[in-house]
Design a protein around this nucleic acid. Sequence first.
RNA 1: GCGCACGUGGCGGAAUGGCAGACGCGCCAGACUUAGGAUCUGGUACCGCAAGGUGUGGAGGUUCAAGUCCUCUCGUGCGCACCA
Length: 865
Amino acid sequence: VTTEANISNFKRQIKSLGFSYDWSREVNTTDPNYFKWTQWIFLKLYNSWFNPKTNKAEPIETLEYPEELKCAADILSAGPDCQEDAGGTVSLDSPRRAYRDSKRLAYVSEAPVNWCEELGTVLANEEVVDGKSEIGGFAVVRKPMRQWMLRITDYAERLLQDLDTIDWSHSLKEMQRNWIGRSEGAEVDFAIADCRLPIADSKIRVFTTRPDTLFGATYMVLAPEHKLVDQITTPEQREVVAKYKSDVAKKSDLERTELAKEKTGVFTGAYAINPVNGEKIPIWIADYVLASYGTGAIMAVPAHDQRDYEFARKFSLPIKQVVYPHSHWTQTLENALADIRKFEVILDAEYGRVIYAEVSREPKAGEILSDFKAFEDTGIAISSEFLNGLPTAEAKQKIIAWLEEKNLGKRTINYKLRDWLFSRQRYWGEPFPIVWKRDANGNLYHEALPESELPVLPPKLDDYKPTPDGQPPLARAKDWVNLPDGSVRETNTMPQWAGSCWYYLRYLDSQNPQTFVGKEAENYWMGAESPKAKVQSPMLADIGLKSTMPGVDLYVGGTEHAVLHLLYARFWHKVLFDLGYVSTPEPFFKLVNQGLILGEDGQKMSKSRGNVVNPDDILKEYGADAFRLYEMFMGPLQDTKPWNTKGVEGVYRFLGRVWRLFVDEKSETEFEQAETTANAERRGELLQLIKLSSAIKEVQPTPAQLKTLHATIKKVTEDLDGLRFNTAISALMVFINEAMTWKTKPVSALRDFLILLQPFAPHLAEELWEKLNIEHRTSNTEHRIALAYAQWPKFDPGLLVEDTLKIPVQVNGKLRDKIVVPADATQQQIETAAQASEKIKPFIEGKTIRKIIVVPKKLVNIVVG
RNA sequence: GCGCACGUGGCGGAAUGGCAGACGCGCCAGACUUAGGAUCUGGUACCGCAAGGUGUGGAGGUUCAAGUCCUCUCGUGCGCACCA
């Protein structure tokens, strides 16, 4: 319940997260222009909603809560420690997900899950626990209120299909595919037997992915929340059905899924007619059927669906096998039928029917078959009249054609993806640029504000809580809400996703006052044929890589955005693409998930474990360069890896070596002495005392030095491009270890090194670059500008060519020696040299040489027998 | 249960099918030091005095050659989950 006490609790909790939160400041720091263009894009969606299915404009849907839910308006109740935490009015985008994510939610979800889904506004506050977004405090569901939905489901297919065109990690794509949840099947209408209902309601539609098993449907199950339940229930069953419904409504999410191994359900007393064979089948309700998926009703085929099988066994419903498994040993129906007699056939004692069960052992006579499984694979249709003998795939086609011809059903694609609840009942966020009016008959309708009215900024409020009657906070500003012409402003606000859906576009043209992103800028940065493609990055061109891809070049983000932000942003981008505002159908063609950094104990960092590493401490102790360098050096970008502060010391030492390579020790000592007596103001000036090492000279690098340098340039350039930062840094370390031994250090080589170092340790590199420029001025103007703008060095492959090669020699695949041969040695010469080796001789003497493999410049393998 | 990813020293991790353990941490020894939690040098997979042998979770396979490819298996992590 939103009470003063809870609000103050919530604020206290926010404070405990490490910052104080001033509610009124939130919007003041927000750029009104950004509000403006977000609202502008919303208006585009609103005014010219492009529906690819109908190719016509449709308004964005607003949704009132269904009437039957209004009764339960008040509260979802709160568990013991939720009472304490509750308070905020942060609504969730996906209550379903929130429920799943948070175990703590389980005991507060007194209301049925899909009730919450329909409402869409579980009021709770969000907290990051164990690196995961969890629902901390839990609060209330308010009175039913108006919500705005975006029809993302219209884009489900394209959002799915286009995943194939983008370079994202496999698992991330899988998560999106899973979330979209496409499944192909059919909708089938079952007539209700002895129906006393109006014609329109005399049938129940089910969704199935296995229409080929229609002949095996022996009963039907509706979700307890299905709208026809009350109407079809016979008077005798009314009481048990009502009780079951209310029991289910009280079940928590946990009880309803994880813990509920045992199927439950009750008979409604009604029957449906199986359209393929006219059989009368009982209609049950059970909570294993979800109201939110498909049509909220199923045809149960217990022989070929594990859940139906379990349910049927529990309630002694008939099981009828209609698919015979044939895949690996039978090709024809005759053989299949023969196999039925030969193999694992079980007679259902109660019903005298043949069922198939996947058995791992011989069933004993009279044994209860509860641990047998339904056969869910494909096979050959049997006991299915005109489908008999057809493999599953063909049987599906045939039955769908049959259903469509008889007007009893149709091919359907079903998605788990739901429309996107886009409104929030909180203060911050963009207000909708929408007003409400009444027509001549007094009916309420909504209308977009003209673009000239943008941005619609939130009014100043003294109190940022929702109103006592559950209206969003903006409703408190009566002057703002009520317009002179009698119309009323929408008081919902947009979610944070609204801004994050298009921010990357604004970056391209952030100062543009005319539009959210100029066409030219958009095309330059995002377009496939953009001029950017012609601006070849020397670093990429050298290694023969295409320098650009359309869209955002590289998106680095965590998996926590996998199914929300990244799906929403793709959706908006596609809408903008359809409206002609952007030039690519996808915004992020290349995306990398950086791995999670765990605590030093290898566990996820969390307050409760006390293994949290505070970046501020690391910055203070080792500096930003070392911190950055360490994070990049820890391991592959994508991997989850444990933090190790000792490792920071390692890279810190490396930076120290870089510093000592450049700086004269004596001058540094002088600086340190001066610094102790100087005040803070003079420190910058005193830094001038630090001079470069006298070993740094303007000389030509020796061939060996050049070889070291260019090997480093090559490695760092390639690794950087492949985001292999750890090995790039390793190469820089190798260079430094080598360069420390140089008596004379050529300026040119050190310059190139600093450019390579700059992406990893920008502060130190820039500092040393400046020192180089002060003491070793060159005519090259490029060297006088900041390092950040310096040209990336090119490596010269010619310099990496060796005169002689050290080649490993194996005998029967085992390393026995390494020989040194001229780089241009022929295969014959290498073979001879290998056999002549003193270390090799003992292994080949007295044996027949079967074969000698010479891998040019790499290896010799002598095969003896 | 389903899907995906990953298993390499004491630790983080390197290795276009071609020298397993780059680089770093840690550890050992030494140098310089009044001192060292600074710096520098050398060593460091395992067994063995050595020659040599054994090693990339386990078992097979392909290959002249496997950490890498294939099959099975065990383990860990992540995601989804009564989705019809």
